[in-house]
Design a protein around this nucleic acid. Structure first.
Lengths: 176, 176
DNA sequence: ATTTACATGTAAGGGGTTACATGATTTG
DNA sequence: CAAATCATGTAACCCCTTACATGTAAAT
């Protein structure tokens, strides 16, 4: 139940339209909370109906841009949510499941798939590192920036985790 | 779309009933693919209808144990699936989202929540390590065991990843 | 006999994915 | 004015979550 809060956060950082949000989810927010444009439009309608956001004054019609801003009630909801507790989600990782299945029925072309994933994670790591260098390389930053940097660090370390694990896993596939 | 394959893997390792599977998902398989008993019973019905599994000969009735075994078609489906490709899932992590939201609306009691998660991850790590010691400490293991060990290693390293990240994050909350 | 644990389900609702539909604006 | 792009949606389906329902077997 976090998509509305992801959208509220994004809109507080900068008022946007549905497509604008979609692009920002593809770029930065989606690195820890992904969403498609269909989800976003549906959620924007709900948030407006709940009185958490409102469209900026523009004549509305289908196919025209509609930008939203967060209302005080929306900020209050987000603030409240930040203070709530929520257990970590249970893991559901298809690659690990595949590995366990391979232990039973044999490692088909799993080595090739592992290498493919290795490249994907390396590419993502490079992207994150360039963002880090661009946005967080100056010596002292605001508290807000430091928190954002921490989140990016989580992404960086997660890619490194996968790269290390897949590299170790590939040692089980010497035929490649 | 991996729950059926998780169940096929579990049933190949050992024929089980719905409740038996539920317990094994809570214990070991659920460490990388979680599922509730409602999901499992529904999926078992589907897998039986598809001709991938069949109940062991026992008189069936509501409330009585029904154990299943995998048919050749089920094994073929699982083997095929292991050889398919599938991109890594997009990340969706509420704690990271919370951190990013906190950068905007302020860090409510997020420090306490971080410490709570830190303890949860430490506990999980201890569990994993005791399983590793119990099942994978002998010097040379079969290929099957090595793959299972690899999957457990992924779980262990993931917990260490979170422990390291949260520890770093807590430095942003010196008031605690 | 009654309670407790075991075991299998049903139902409702939410959220995510995929495919498709349609209107508005810009560009050649 | 035709095509491409921008922008907002609709619809169907699947999976997961939560709460609840019901039957069987074992324990006291």
């Amino acid at each position: 139940m976090s998509l509305p809060h992801a959208i509220l956060t994004a809109l507080l950082e900068k008022p946007s339209s549905g497509l604008g949000l979609t692009r920002r989810f593809d770029k930065s927010i989606g690195y820890f909370w992904s969403a498609t444009h269909q989800q976003i439009y549906r959620e924007l309608a709900k948030l407006e109906q709940s009185g958490f956001i409102r469209p900026l004054p523009q004549q509305p019609s289908r196919g025209r841009k509609r930008e939203y801003e967060v209302l005080p009630a929306g900020r209050a909801e987000l603030t409240d949510w930040v203070g709530r507790t929520e257990d970590p989600r249970a893991v559901r990782d298809p690659l690990l499941l595949r590995m366990r299945a391979a232990a039973v029925v044999g490692t088909q072309d799993l080595g090739a798939e592992l290498e493919r994933h290795l490249h994907l994670h390396r590419d993502q790591l490079v992207k994150y590192l360039s963002i880090e260098e661009r946005d967080f390389s100056s010596p002292d930053l605001s508290a807000e920036s430091r928190l954002q940097h921490l989140v990016l660090r989580a992404g960086i370390d997660l890619e490194r985790y996968w790269i290390a694990w897949i590299t170790e896993a590939l040692r089980e596939f010497p035929e490649r």
